[in-house]
Amino acid sequence: MSISEFLADLTNPDLAFLPKALLIAVMSSVVCGVVGCYVVLRGMAFIGDAVAHAVFPGLAVAFVLQGSLVVGGAVAGVVTAVLVAVFSQNRRIKEDSVIGVFYVASFALGVVIISQAPGYAGSLQQFLFGSITGVPDEDLYTAAVTGLLLLAAVLLLHQQFVTVSLDRELARAVGLRVFWLDIALYVLVTVAIVISVRTIGNILVLALLVTPAATARLLTDRLGVMMLLAPAIGGSGAVVGLYLSWSYDLPVGGSIVLVLAGVFLAAWTFAPRHGLLARRWRRGGLEENPAPAGAV
């Protein structure tokens, strides 16, 4: 399918779900891209994974009761995020095992709950791998408003997040409330996931959080640039992925994630400073590094 045909379909009133899907996919990617920067830099991808799984029973309950999926997912996710924060304060516990047991269990709970709904195989499939059809308008508004609130929160708390991520000990010494900032960050991660989970699917949403941010990290050493690049990469990946999915009748979550993974691989190979080729090149050539003459 050509680009112009895709554009025609986007504006076709019979296919009204398509622009909505595009909108929500792009919003999800942008929000996840921004929050994902903290996730990648703090090496807390496991939290994203945990929350993505834990959101599931909330979605399932909302689905069975015909309530709002966003609200159901958010409640389950936030509860989880707070529990993770509480568990990981005590660094003597190996948190990954706790999380492993706990979250797979909540995922299982979701499966059991959703099996109570009629036609459950289809809905399970939707939850796991995402779907672009039938996004209600109110979900679109909820996602837009929460997304904006989330970006505003990031803007306001950025300095604090950076201070804690850089050095927890100093953050405490200068009087930051490290525990509450952790909770705030986990809640932001949860919200980003909940907004995205419906289009991208439960299993693949982690990629939206991690891949664009990791790609951006390869391309820059400046945090500000990284936090602009990651949503840009995520947003473009969503557009291209949705286009491919629509053209070749592929699952949308899978297409978006594969596009993002492709971009990551390209950056990993070709990135100007940290890429594979650049490193090879430098190792081959002369290192320009003047002798440290009394330099500390």
């Binding site: 830099l41 850089l166 050095d167 820059t220 050493d221 400046r222 945090l223």
Partner: peptide, 9 residues
């Protein structure tokens, strides 16, 4: 204690 790999000036 400091995350030296953090992309910060």
């Amino acid at each position: 204690e400091f995350a030296w790999d953090f992309p910060i000036s």
